[in-house]
C-alpha cells in the first residue's frame, strides 16, 4: 500500500456491539492503523471526540442513546473531519440520508475486511493529501496540484512539463481515483461534463487522445491509459 503516511491518523469507531468494535479494531490494526479509539454510545463518542480529536469517524446508525446521523452532525460542529457510516441499515433511503447529511461513505454490514480497509484508506487519502501528490506512470508523472504532466524521455533526468486543460485534469483525476480499475465512458463524461452527459462520447475520445499524447511515450500504443473496448478506460499507475 502506498498510504503509509495515513496509518497514523486518529480514527474513532462508534458501535453498540463491543465484539464488532473489537473486530474492526483488529482489522485496522492488522493493516497498520494504530491510533484508534472506540465508543459504544453517543455520550461516550462525544466525550472521546473532545479528548481524542479524531481525524476520521466510523459510526453505526442505531445507537442506544441516539442516532448516528445526529451524532455526525454534532461531531461535525467540533471539527470538519470525514465520517464513514458502518451500519446494518441497508435501505436506499438510509444511504441517501447519510450521504445527504454529508457522510463520506456508507458501508452496509456485513462487509469484507478488505472492503472496509479500501474505503477507509480512500477517504483518508482524499481528505489528507500526502507530501507528494504526484502520480507515477510509466515514463511520466501527473501533478494534479499544478495540473501538469512531467514526461521523462529516455536517459534524461529532468522531465518536460506539459500542462493539462481543465477537462483533461478532471478526466485524469477520475481515472486516477480508480487507478488499476476500469472507469466507464459514462462516469468519465460525468466527471468532465456533469450530470446526464448524453452525447459526449466523441468529445471524450478526443480528450483521451490528447491526454495520451501528453502522458504516453507512444500514444498509438498506450501503456498507461488503456482502452477497454465499449466499456471505458483504465489508468495503470506504477507502484511507488
Amino acid at each position: 500500500m502506498d498510504g503509509e503516511y495515513l496509518k497514523s491518523r486518529r480514527i474513532l469507531l462508534v458501535d453498540d456491539e463491543q465484539e464488532l468494535l473489537d473486530m474492526v479494531v483488529s482489522i485496522l490494526k492488522a493493516e497498520g492503523y494504530c491510533n484508534i479509539r472506540t465508543a459504544g454510545t453517543v455520550r461516550d463518542a462525544l466525550a472521546a471526540a473532545a479528548a481524542f480529536r479524531p481525524e476520521l469517524a466510523v459510526l453505526d446508525v442505531m445507537l442506544p442513546d441516539g442516532s448516528g446521523f445526529e451524532l455526525m452532525e454534532q461531531l461535525r460542529r467540533e471539527g470538519g473531519y470525514p465520517v464513514l457510516f458502518l451500519t446494518a441499515r441497508g435501505e436506499d433511503e438510509d444511504k441517501f440520508k447519510g450521504f445527504g447529511l454529508g457522510a463520506d461513505d456508507y458501508v452496509v454490514k456485513p462487509f469484507l475486511p478488505r472492503e472496509l480497509i479500501l474505503r477507509i484508506t480512500a477517504i483518508l487519502r482524499r481528505s489528507y493529501k500526502g507530501e507528494n501528490p504526484l502520480v507515477k506512470l510509466r515514463g511520466s508523472e501527473i501533478d494534479f496540484d499544478r495540473a501538469e504532466v512531467v514526461r521523462y524521455a529516455k536517459g534524461m533526468k529532468d522531465g518536460e512539463h506539459i500542462s493539462l486543460t481543465a477537462k483533461e485534469h478532471d478526466i485524469l483525476a477520475a481515472l486516477c481515483r480508480n487507478a488499476g480499475r476500469i472507469v466507464t465512458i459514462d462516469a468519465l463524461c460525468e466527471a468532465a461534463w456533469g450530470d446526464n452527459p448524453f452525447g459526449y462520447e466523441n468529445s471524450l475520445m478526443a480528450h483521451i487522445r490528447r491526454i495520451r499524447e501528453k502522458i504516453e511515450a507512444d500514444p498509438s500504443h498506450p501503456v498507461s491509459l488503456i482502452t477497454v473496448k465499449g466499456l471505458g478506460y483504465k489508468l495503470v499507475t506504477e507502484e511507488r
Partner: peptide, 21 residues
C-alpha cells in the same frame, strides 16, 4: 430478520476474512 442478521454475519465475515489472509 435481515437487519438483525447483519451484525453477527459481519463478525463471521470479518474474522473469516482476516483468517483467510
Amino acid at each position: 430478520v435481515s437487519h438483525d442478521i447483519r451484525t453477527p454475519l459481519s463478525m463471521v465475515m470479518g474474522y473469516a476474512g482476516q483468517l483467510a489472509e
